[in-house]
Amino acid sequence: MKKIAFIGAGNMNGAIISGLVNGGFNPENIMVSNPSPEKRLALQATHGIKQTPDNIEATTFADVIVLGVKPYLISDVCQHLSEHVDITGKCFISVAAGCTIKQIEQALNKPCTVIRTMPNTPSQLGFGVSGIYANDHANDEERAFTTSLMESVGIVKWLESEQQIDHIIAVSGSAPAYFFLFMEAMQKQAIAYGFSEQDSRDLVQQTALGAAKMVIENKLPISKLRENVTSKGGTTQAALSSLIEGGLDQLVSNAMNCAVDRAKAMAKNG
C-alpha cells in the first residue's frame, strides 16, 4: 500500500485524510506535516495517523505527496523539498487553485508526476466534486490512485486539459458560495415575512436539500424538473418569471466567467 504525506493540515487535507481512514486506508501509511502543532495533533488524535512539523520528513516517508498549502507557498515548498529529498518516483498532487502544473514542475526542477485536483468545500462532508488533470509523467497506477484518493470525499471528473481546471472552479469549486448566497437571500425574505431566523433557515435549507436530491434521484433534465413544478399561471411561474426577467441566466453566466478570469489571473501571477 502506498504511503501518503499531506503537506498542510487545513480543511481540505483534513477532509481527505478523514475520507481515506473512514474508507479503510491504513492510518499508519499517512503522515501530515504542518508548522503549527494544533491541527496536525488533532488529526493524529482523531485518525491515528503520523504527524511531523517537518515537510522533509513527511516527503521522505511518502510515495504520494498531497500539497495542501496556500497557492502562493507551493513553489517555495516544492523547491525546498526538491533540494533536500530524492523525489524520483514520487507523485505530487496539488489541491490548490491558481498554481499550474508547469509552475510546480519548475519548482520541483526534476521530472516527476504532478497532478492537479480541484475539490470543493462539500468534500469536508464527503459530498465533494473534484476535477483532476495530470502531466505526461503520470502512469495508469498513479491516475487510479488519485481517483481513489479523491473519491474518498466525493465524485471525480478527469479533465481533457488543464485549462478546464479553471472551468471546474467556476462550475463546482466556487459554486457552493453561489448557492449559499441564494439561500441567504431567501432566508432574509422569509424573516421579512415574519418567520424566525431559525425557522427561516430550516425552511430554506431543507428545500435546497430536497431540490438537490430530486436532481440526483431523477434522470430527467433539470429543466424538465423545473417545468414539472411550474403550473401555468401559478405562484411558481410568477416567481420564475421575475427571476428570468431580472436576467438570472446572464447573471449566473457573468459570475462564472468572473471566477474563470480570476483563476487565470491567479495562475499568471503565481
Rank of each mutant, 00 (worst) to 15 (best):
Y133H: 15
F180W: 07
A192M: 09
Y193I: 00
T147Y: 00
M186E: 05
Q164D: 11
S152Y: 00
L181F: 08
T147F: 00
S148D: 12
E151P: 00
F180Q: 09
Q189T: 11
A138L: 08
Q163H: 14
L159V: 06
A192S: 13
L149N: 01
Q187C: 00
G128W: 05
W158H: 11
A138R: 08
I132Q: 10
S152H: 03
A190S: 15
S130E: 04
V156W: 07
R143S: 09
I169L: 12
F179W: 05
I169Y: 02
I155L: 05
A170T: 11
E141F: 07
V153E: 02
G154T: 07
M186V: 13
T147Q: 10
E184C: 03
V129F: 04
Q189S: 14
Q187K: 13
V153T: 13
K157V: 14
S174T: 07
E162A: 06
H167S: 09
N139D: 15
E142G: 07
I132A: 10
F180M: 12
D140I: 13
H137Q: 15
T147K: 13
S161Y: 07
E184R: 03
F145E: 05
A134E: 11
Q164H: 14
V156Q: 02
D136C: 01
N135Q: 12
M183A: 15
F145P: 07
E141M: 05
V156F: 07
Q163L: 13
K188C: 03
K157C: 04
P176W: 01
G173C: 06
Y178R: 02
L149T: 10
G154R: 02
M183W: 02
D140R: 09
V156G: 01
A134I: 01
V171S: 04
H167M: 12
Q189H: 08
V153C: 09
E184W: 05
M186A: 14
Y193G: 00
Y178T: 01
I169C: 14
V156T: 15
Y133F: 15
A177M: 04
H167N: 11
E184H: 13
G128R: 02
T146K: 00
M186P: 04
A175F: 00
T147M: 01
D166C: 13
S161Q: 10
E141Y: 08
I168M: 05
S148L: 10
D166S: 13
G131V: 04
E160T: 10
F179L: 15
K157E: 04
E142C: 06
V129S: 03
